Amino acid sequence: MNENTLSYGQFPPESNAPATRTYEHCKTWVEQGVEVTVITGAPNFPHGKVYKGYSNKIYSIEYVDGIKVIRVWTFIAANKGFLKRIIDFISFMISAFIAGLFVKTDLIIATSPQFFTAVAGRWLAFWKRKKWVMEVRDLWPESIKAVGAMDRNIAIRFFEYLEHRMYKNAYKIVSVTDSFKRYIIADHNIPSSRIAVVKNGINTSMFSPITKSTSLIKELGLENKFIIGYIGTHGMAHKLDFILQCADKVKDESVHFLFVGAGAEKDNLLKLKENLGLKNVSLLPSVQKKQVKEYLSIIDVGLVNLRKSDTFKSVLPSKIFELAAMHKPILLGVEGEAKELVEQYNVGLSFDPENETEFLRAIERLKNSDLDRWEFSRLVADFDRVDLAKKMLEFLKED
């Protein structure tokens, strides 16, 4: 890599984990002297509505902290439903490819998910005769099968073929977990030397311990409550209906569940809350990134949950790092690498996904635990996002 890098992915003001990772890595690279261009769409996640101040134009340019951001037209769909989202993904693939043809670059980085972003990067690398890097943030289409969105039909088999071709063709691969790297090596016969693991991390300038927001607690009517909080996407993978069903079994009236966010399952969760008559659950809409810290400040325990699936044993949710940075103990319903990390760094308790007995027992243990028993500082130091961005940059520079 010389001076110019072209990156495809979600980008702020969207505040989900992929957008945050792309922005914070690119910002660090610019500070290291790299010229970075990001191709993305009009911000609309998760509701499928373009944010105020933006429009779904064919092509527009803005500059954010030294990063050149090109926004292209897409068929915008909300983060629910399968067919419309696929059309959305394909439209971005085509628009981003065309826009990329007119960008000077030495290296192309394309992220997965969504998978069609990687296809656009591959196409552009071919036509521009440039090297490209595939950043693997999810095992797609494995994750589609894991949440039951699609059976293994001809479409899935085609996506699996594309996945294999992308891994084989990429100049280098950046994985966000060790498990992903092992899978790519074993199932796709990719040399280990072509793959680097750069995990999600912590923006310590944004997330750090602060005093609870008493005004927000009062506004939400949660005085004298032990708050278990979930802030993020309410999707099929997160199995939050299980949490609501467990909340119905919690007898301790001081325990309250706070959910903040949106997603494909939000409407179903609202209906379930109403049907169960839950008084100990609040389901709030998503908030801006700058407000997330205030909401995190008022929780006593941070919930990180995924449905029970072998596929999700390989993931490492970014919520773990933000919660640790805020010194919030974690209630983890994820197996595999995430569980190993939480236990290794002693930042929370885990339960077997979708196991009601273990979940309720873990809540009781956390409520009765002393905050001093948790060790957050070591994890925060080991996963500083600036350091991780520099690590990725060094890997990209290697011949």
Rank of each mutant, 00 (worst) to 15 (best):
P12K: 04
R21Q: 04
G41W: 02
N44L: 05
H47V: 13
Y54N: 07
K57E: 10
V64M: 11
D65S: 14
W73H: 10
I76L: 03
F89A: 09
I90M: 00
A96M: 00
A96W: 06
F97I: 01
I98G: 07
I108Q: 05
I108F: 04
A110D: 08
F116E: 00
W132K: 11
V133H: 14
V133N: 14
V136Y: 08
R137A: 02
R137G: 12
V147F: 10
V147N: 01
A149S: 02
I154H: 02
F159W: 11
L162T: 04
H164W: 09
Y167W: 15
Y167V: 08
I185R: 00
I185A: 08
I190P: 10
P191T: 01
V197C: 07
V198K: 06
S208C: 03
S208P: 09
K225F: 04
I228G: 11
T233A: 14
K239T: 12
L240F: 15
V250E: 13
L258P: 02
F259W: 02
G263S: 07
E265V: 00
L269F: 07
L272W: 03
K279D: 10
K279G: 12
S282D: 00
K290L: 13
K290W: 14
K290R: 15
Q291S: 13
Y295Q: 06
I298G: 01
R307D: 04
R307F: 02
K308Y: 09
K313E: 03
P317W: 09
P329M: 07
P329W: 03
P329E: 10
E343D: 15
L360Q: 08
I363V: 06
R365N: 02
L366A: 06
W374I: 01
S377P: 08
D387V: 01
L393R: 00
